[in-house]
């Protein structure tokens, strides 16, 4: 079975500007984050996979088919754009029915799917109101609902948390997580917010200046490092002094002690020193790399 998405030496030029330069990767089931700063080529990659634009060279394939050349194949994907895209005067129900039928569903099934999908995104009560009356959060939910109303195998989300307040962002991330875990619809999430990817993605593809910078499972990219983080409630100075006497160099930062290049036996030393110093341990854990570290070439 072909991968859900596949980029084969994917290249896109806009005049002399190279948006994507021979990028190759595959996307499987689950949640995949497409990360990169502005201008990295994320939106271009999305549009190529959606069949909105044609590659200059290479291929963008969805389930083994090129969406630009075979429109029929597009009825198994969904798309949620970053910007406003909802017709002001339509109700959410009418809009979702239309979008379901545009993906090939007969009217009676489209009506049922529209009602069900709006309920799943938490818009049951407001579904008959014109959409220009909706809040930003409600509009984001309709945008997600129209992307999944036809039950695609894969949905492409472009900056789905853009413009949302912290609560709205958490809610949207929960909804995306449910879409993948409970609804069984794979997700490709384009964002420049690494926190979003770390929170819900299984794997990540990092683009930078039109080329592939990193790819892999989020868990392996953010694996544990050799840096040991110790947080104590009190007695941090005495604790650090005892550690230094026993040959373990620790840098203090408030209530935190950081030991670089910690070895296996250092854990026992830390435990004994904490007892001897009367320091109350709150946390003792190896540091993990964050996606921010990966971007900035941080500690491995």
């Amino acid at each position: 079975m072909p991968p859900l998405l596949e980029a084969r030496s994917l290249t896109k030029h806009y005049g002399r500007t190279v948006a994507l330069d021979g990028v190759s990767f595959e996307v499987g089931e689950g949640v995949t984050g497409l990360l990169g700063p502005n201008g990295a080529g994320k939106s271009t990659a999305m549009k190529l996979f959606l069949g909105l634009i044609q590659p200059t060279a290479g291929a963008a394939l969805i389930l083994g088919e090129a969406p630009y050349d075979s429109p029929e194949g597009r009825n198994r994907i969904g798309y949620m754009p970053e910007n406003d895209c909802l017709p002001r005067d339509m109700t959410a129900t009418e809009f979702l029915m239309l979008m379901a039928q545009l993906s090939g569903l007969p009217p009676s099934q489209a009506r049922t799917r529209a009602a069900d999908t709006l309920r799943h995104v938490g818009l049951d009560e407001e579904r008959y109101r014109p959409m220009h009356e909706y809040s930003t959060g409600m509009k984001q939910r309709v945008k997600l609902a129209q992307a999944i109303v036809h039950d695609p195998v894969l949905v492409l989300l472009d900056e789905p948390t853009a413009g949302l307040d912290p609560d709205g962002r958490q809610e949207m991330l929960r909804l995306i997580d449910r879409t993948a875990r409970n609804f069984g619809i794979s997700v490709m999430l384009s964002t420049h917010l690494m926190g979003d990817v770390e929170r819900i993605a299984d794997s990540v593809i990092v683009l930078e200046s039109g080329v592939l910078a990193q790819e892999g499972a989020v868990a392996s990219l953010t694996q544990e490092t050799e840096t040991l983080i110790i947080e104590v409630a009190e007695g941090v100075d005495a604790f650090a002094a005892i550690l230094a006497e026993r040959g373990v160099e620790a840098n203090s930062d408030g209530n935190l002690l950081v030991i670089e290049h910690a070895k296996e036996e250092d854990y026992d030393t830390v435990r004994d020193a904490a007892v001897d110093a009367g320091a109350r341990l709150r946390r003792l854990a190896p540091a993990r790399r964050t996606l921010t570290d990966i971007f900035r070439g941080g500690p491995a």
Partner: peptide, 20 residues
Amino acid sequence: LGYQRYTGPREGRNRARWAL
């Protein structure tokens, strides 16, 4: 019943044209 996968018919481009 929670989210249900759609297993009904998909009628392709002509349905999309008609709907539009």
